[in-house]
Structure formats: C-alpha cells, structure tokens
Design a protein around this nucleic acid. Sequence first.
DNA 1: TTATTACATTGCAATATTACGATAAATATA
DNA 2: TATATTTATCGTAATATTGCAATGTAATAA
Lengths: 111, 111
Amino acid sequence: MGITKTDLFTVSQNEMASIAKVFAHPARIAIMEHLIKSNACINSDLVSELGLAQATISQHLKELKNIGVLQGTVEGTAMNYCINPEKWIEIKNMFNQFFDKNIACNGEDCC
Amino acid sequence: MGITKTDLFTVSQNEMASIAKVFAHPARIAIMEHLIKSNACINSDLVSELGLAQATISQHLKELKNIGVLQGTVEGTAMNYCINPEKWIEIKNMFNQFFDKNIACNGEDCC
DNA sequence: TTATTACATTGCAATATTACGATAAATATA
DNA sequence: TATATTTATCGTAATATTGCAATGTAATAA
C-alpha cells in the first residue's frame, strides 16, 4: 500500500517517525551538516556542493523547513537558510528521551 | 525517481540516513517501545498490541533486525525479540554526535 | 522596461515503501 | 503421524518518495 496507518499509533510515535523521516535521506543530512559548517548558506551554494539539481535541493530544503529545523530569510534574490536552534534542541531532546530508556533485560530467559 | 544517489554523499551521511529510515515509521517506534516496556516479546503479542497484520509486523521486525537494533532468539515455535543493548548505545551515540554540533550563528546578518 | 539571477513549483517517470492474504517452514502436541 | 501454533516469505496492490526538466515568481541590474 505505501500508506501508513497513523491512527494505530500514539501522537508521539507518529511525531517521532515523521521527524526521523526527514532525517532519512543523505542529502538532507548533508544539507544540515553544510549549514552548520558554513553558519549560513543559500540554495545555489548547495547545488554546486552536493551535485543534485536545483529543483531537487529546493525540495529537500522544503521538507527541512516543514519540520522547522531550518529557517530561511530572503536576502535580495537569494535565500539565507540556517538551522533553527530552538527546534534543533527540541529534536535533540526528543531523540535523547527515546534513547535514554532503560533497556536492561530482567529475566535470565531474556535473549 | 525514488532512488537515492548515495554516491554523492559520505559513508556516515548514508549510514545516518539509513538508520533514521528505520526509525521513520510509527509501527517500528511502537515495536521498540513495547519491547522496552516488556523487556522481551514475541511477534504474536505485537499483532494484538498494534493492530497490524502478522505479515506486516514480521516485515517491520526484519527491518529492525537488519540494522541490528533488535535481536531474536528462538523459543519453541515462538520468537523472543529484544533490543540489542550495544547497538542501541551505538545509535544513541550517533544521534548525539550529530546533534552536539555547535549551531550558533556567528554573523549579525545570519538569519 | 527588459534582462538576469536565484529560488520555488509543477508535472512527470522511476523506484521504494507499506500492508496484507496466501502459503511455507519449523516446532510442539495429541 | 497428523494437527495446531507461530513466524517468515512471496506476490501483489496501493501509495509515497526521489530526481529533474520545464516553468513560474520575485527581486535586482542594465
């Protein structure tokens, strides 16, 4: 089907999954890493940096903007994209909360 | 196209993306959370717990096994799945390294 | 006004993912 | 042995994602 049955899961499970989905493409990881290195960046830089077409990069940027991890300001004809620090921390905390659960097995017949 | 141009990106960017992809479905988040709560679990438990078909759950478990975050031991006709603690820490560290980068803007014209 | 530049959007083709019924495989039980 | 139980795999339909050329839009420069 390709359709996810979101109604079967909790809000936080769906949220975690949809944020992870944005991180689930190497181009979007590369965009974030490049933005962090440069401290600011425009779309056209990324085209030469990553080797993907302008339309493709614009699409990835849109998905990163959609979850709020990127913010963009207009700079003449160019765009000035950078990481949204508040959202960055928020997502970081979300992953931390998930991974900080106690995963110790308690029974001797466990795994 | 639906095909990712992995050759354009670094090994670590591709790895991060492919692990995030496994976390990018609420059923797989729910499976991990249920395993952590129960400390051990079999496939048939999850079918009644999650409301997805047995074949679907088996498929999700396979993907979680593929990246090593789950391990399964045979228990008669049943399976005993649980979190792999070493891999759990490894993935946790991967995300921590990614999010612990300094994202402070340095220029006054930045965002 | 007419380019030019930079980015977004649209419309597709190719491929991937999700879900599940059917069925296979493996073990346990009568 | 025959049957039930549990999980894995296969095949397939529905939907989603990826990538890009073409085009649209908005601001600047000539």
